[in-house]
Design a protein around this nucleic acid. Structure first.
Lengths: 219, 219
DNA sequence: TAGATTGTTAATCGATTAACAATC
DNA sequence: TAGATTGTTAATCGATTAACAATC
């Protein structure tokens, strides 16, 4: 067991990717996978995959590769997904509702168990089996349900206030969908999930001219 | 004008961030901003900001800083957002509908102008003013509306097929929300927007024990 | 003029990839 | 045994940060 060396964020962010690919292989009844095969699947360098995994232990067998189920269980453990993790979502708008319904995370032991909103129109509404609660109930609910992660899907202008409230309620991590940089105490980790960044940067790579027929102009 | 040197992805991905912060400053009637002030706002090193911008030209004034409106117009130009860019969305589920409604991009000259789905239940449905169209109409609509970017919000299992169809229709960029690695021709650029990665990696940084009272156990 | 801040070069830091002995 | 593949060290590559002359 190493764990001493501080693991870089880049490595940690690849772990869920590995998990994803491995889950797929597992569903396909694949027993064993090499770093090369996994790399092909994920468009990643095999040496990088081996190195990433080696930070956490010796999970493979020389000449053979990695046992799929075993590696899944190891990565789940590393990501602390071997216990269920409860999540609260703040902001019951379109995006928030979509995330609540979209429950792909539950397979990975993460579950949105409470939804909050400030707006009277939203409070009391039902999403799945959850009742949208007012922000005043945040702290008590976080404590009662042992919620550890918060998702922010409110407009940018409200995001900082919500982050403060989540931090105050004792949340340990925030996934922020609002296009805003949040200031939080060091005990709280923030991950950014604002896809407008990805969408706008995509535009950079478009061909120069809006008109496709750049190099074959006729008239 | 440089542009010769290939700009790294990391740089390009920061441009929308700059744009975001600058737009905010602009709304606050701020005329001028220094790399230091911008860095504080975005939690970025000022030298990095200056270097990033310098790849594209000399936009600042020594001793003064950057003119906010001027820099906005420059970055918008670099990102090719000075012309409108039409976007198609495929997958009219919860997430897809949310993205259609959430029209924050239109401010940045990007607009979802068509929605597609394969499922009979969805086809013909209305989201905003858009009618959900069957996939058979994809190619014709992409050409008619000069759509250049596609957003994928279908389940992972269907994502590759949709990517193939988008590529075939002549799309230049894809924003993929499905947890799947897409294989596309080199003419198409794919950006990944699967937030489950961000959510799961957040778990890694939680305190070891699910029980908060780690260091103050009583019973 | 003095203070501030850019654009840019050089120094540092970190991450990715190649290579290979160990071994299944 | 021969072939495959790991774990790990060394080499490479690239990105970030520091420093500073130029100049508003």
């Amino acid at each position: 067991m190493k764990q001493q060396t501080k693991i870089s964020e880049a490595v940690v962010r690849r772990l869920p990717l590995y998990l994803q690919a491995l889950n797929e292989l597992s569903r396909g009844e694949v027993q064993t996978v090499s770093s090369q095969a996994l790399g092909r699947k994920l468009d990643l360098n095999p040496a990088q995959i081996r190195k990433d995994l080696a930070y956490f232990g010796e999970f493979g067998r020389k000449g053979i590769g990695y046992d799929v189920s075993y590696l899944i269980s190891k990565i789940r453990h590393i990501l602390k997904l071997d216990r269920g993790i409860n999540v609260a979502l703040v902001g019951a708008g379109n995006l928030g509702q979509a995330l609540c319904n979209y429950n792909r995370y539950s397979r990975d032991n993460m579950k949105i168990v409470a939804v909050f909103d400030d707006h009277p129109d939203k409070i009391g509404m039902h999403i799945n089996t959850m009742r949208v609660q007012p922000m005043e109930e945040l702290k008590a609910t976080v404590e009662a349900l042992q919620i550890r992660i918060g998702i922010i899907t409110v407009p940018a202008a409200a995001a900082q206030k919500v982050a403060d409230q989540l931090a105050d309620a004792g949340i340990e991590g925030i996934l922020n969908f609002a296009p805003a940089i949040l200031k939080v105490p060091p005990s709280v980790r923030v991950h950014h999930a604002d896809f407008t960044t990805e969408l706008l940067s995509l535009a950079y790579y478009l061909e120069k001219d809006a008109d496709h027929d750049d190099d074959k102009v006729v008239d």
